[in-house]
Nucleic acid binder design. Sequence first.
RNA 1: GCAUCCGUAGCUCAGCUGGAUAGAGCGUUGGCCUCCGGAGCCAAAGGUCGUGAGUUCGAAUCUCGCCGGAUGCACCA
Length: 602
Amino acid sequence: MERLKDAFSRALAAALPGQDIVLERPKAGEHGDLAFPCFRAAKALGGNPAELARRLAAELNVEGAALVAAGPYLNLRLAPLDRARVLLEAILQAEPARPYGSGEPHGEVVIVEYSSPNIAKLFTIGHLRSTMIGHALVQVHRFLGARVVRLNHLGDWGTQFGTLLAAYKRWAEAENPELSRDFPWAEEIPGARRSPLFRLFQLYVRFHAEEEKDPAMRDEARDWFRRLEAGDPEARRLWSWFREISLREFQRIYQRLGVAFDSLEMGEAFYEDQIAATLQRLEASGHLVEGENGARIVHLEDVGIQAPCLLQKADGTSIYATRDIAAGLYRQRTYAFDRCLYVVGGEQVLHFQQVFAVLEKLDPWFKGRLKHTPFGLIQLPEGKMSTRKGNVIFLEDVLDEAAQRVRAVIEEKNPELPDKERVAEMLGLGAVLFFNAINDRVKSITFTWERAVALDGDTGPYVQYAHARICSVLRKAGGDWAARARPSTEPCPESAGVDYLPVEAPQDLAGLEDPAAQELLFQLGGLPEAVRSAAREGMATALARQLLAVARAFSGFYTLCPVLAAENPAAVRESRLALCLATARALRQGLYLMGIQAPEEM
RNA sequence: GCAUCCGUAGCUCAGCUGGAUAGAGCGUUGGCCUCCGGAGCCAAAGGUCGUGAGUUCGAAUCUCGCCGGAUGCACCA
C-alpha cells in the first residue's frame, strides 16, 4: 500500500508540477483505496476540479491499480483481488519485529508521564484516565518506533503530605499507631476496601473536614511539610512508611491493569534534593523575583501568561511547580528527550503553561518538546466526585462489577467455557478500558454504571467477541490455523508489537471478491492511519473506533461469507481463512496497544 | 471579570490540519438461530451540526460576536 501511495504521488507530482499533493483515504470503500481531491490544484491551474480529475484519470498510469475520476476526486482503486493481496501480505507476512501498521524504529526519546496518583488516596476511576491514556500513548509511540520512558510522577511530596503527618499525629498515633484497624470515628465509605491505605485516607478526609471549622489547622499541616522538607527525622520516617503503604496498593492495581513503569521511584520526592539547585539556577538567570510576603515568583506576562509562577512559598518551602521544573531539568540531563508528554487533567492547563514557560526561559532547548496532554474529569450524575463527601467511585469496584456482569453473561451463554474467571476479568477490563478510550479525552465523562461496564454495542467486548469468533472458526478449520492466530512469543515490550510468525498469503484469493470481504479489507486498511492518529492526537479514540469498524465489518463478512461450508472450493476456504487470520491478528494487536487482551474463547 | 475547553439524532458520542450523501452505539419499531458462537446480523424512524455574522468555489470543521455549560486564575496537587 505504501508503494502504491508513492507511485500515485509521484505520478501526480509529475503531472502537476509545483502543486501540493495531499492524498486522502476515501470515507467509503467503494470510492477506492486512495483519493486525490482536485479542488486546490484545479483552482491554481484555473480549471474545474471535475475536469481535472477526468483529465488526470485519462493521462496518468499507476501500475497495478485503476485511476477513476469521481466528480472532483481522482481515486486510485485496486481490483478486489489485488486489494486482498496487498492487505493480506501486509498483515500476514509482516516480520515479527515489524507488525502491520508499525513504524520504523527512529530512536526519538519520548517521555510519557502518567498515572501519578497521590499518596494516601485511593485509586478512583478518576485515576484511570491518566493511567490508561498514558499507557496507550506509551504503546502507540513504541509501536511507531520511538524509545519511550514511562514515568509515574507520584504525588509523594508537598503540603498534602503535611496534612497527613498532622492528621496522624493528632489522631492515629495514640489511637491506632499501626493503622491496623478501623478508627472508631471514621465514617464508612461504601465499597472501599479495608486496608492501611484506606485508614490513611480516612485520616486525610477527617483532617480536611475539621480544617473547615478550624482554619488554623492548615498552618499545622504546612508546618509539618516544612519539617519534612527540612529533614526532620520523625517526619521522614512517617513519610517513607506512608509512601510504602500507598505503593503496595498501587502496585496491585497496576498489575491488574497490566500497566508498568520504568521506575516508581521518580515521584515528586525524587526531585527534592534538586530543588535548591533549581532555585539557584532561576535566581542566577535573573528570572526569580520576590513576590508577596517574601514568596518567590517568576513573572510571565512577557510570554502572555498573566499569572506569575510561584516557586517558593513565604515559609521557604517548595511547591509543585518547583518540583515540576526540577523534574524537567533532570529529564533533560538524564534522557535528552525529544518529547515529554504530561498526561494530567485539564484543570492543570495553566500550571503547565507556567512550568513550560519557566523552563523555556531557562533554556530554549525546551521549546516544542514539552506537551501537556490534558483530559476531562469524570463526573457523577449528581456532580463532581468529592473525596470529602465520600461520593467517589473506586476503580477496583468498577473492575469487579464489570467482571461480575461478564461472569453472569458467561453463565447464561457459554457455561461450559473453561477458565471463566480469567476470561471474565479480560472482558471486564476490556469493557472498562475501551469505554475509557473511545471518547475524546478532553471532554468530561459522566460516570454511570450502565455505560462504564456496558457489554453490547460499541464496546471492548464487541471487538473481543469478533476475535473470539474468528478463533473459533480457525479451530474448526483444523490444521495449524488456530495456532497461527496465537502470538509466537510474549509481546515485545520495546516495540509494543504482538509477535506472529509470518504466514504466506494464499495464491488464489477467489473467496474474497464478495463486497463483505472487500469492506473488511478496506477497514483493515484503515488501521495504520488510526494508530498514527492516536499518537498525533494523544488519545486512542481513533484506534478504538477503527477496531470497532473492523469488528463490525468482520461480523458482516461472517454472516454473508461462509468460510467452512462444505460446498466451498478449497481456494475459497483457504483465502477466507487467511482473511480471518489477518483480522484476528490485527484485532489482537490493536487491542494490545490499548492495554486490552483478546481471549480466544468467551 | 479574565483565560482555556466544550455545545452534532430522544440519550451517549464520532467526524474538526475546510472538501464526495453528517456517522456509530444505546433506546424505539420491524425482520433474522435446519447453516462456522444471536455478547451477533439486516432494515426503518430520528439531525435548522447552540446562535448570528464573516472568510471561501465550498464551513459541523477556520475567524469574530452572542447564548448555555465545565475548568482555571500564586503560597494545594
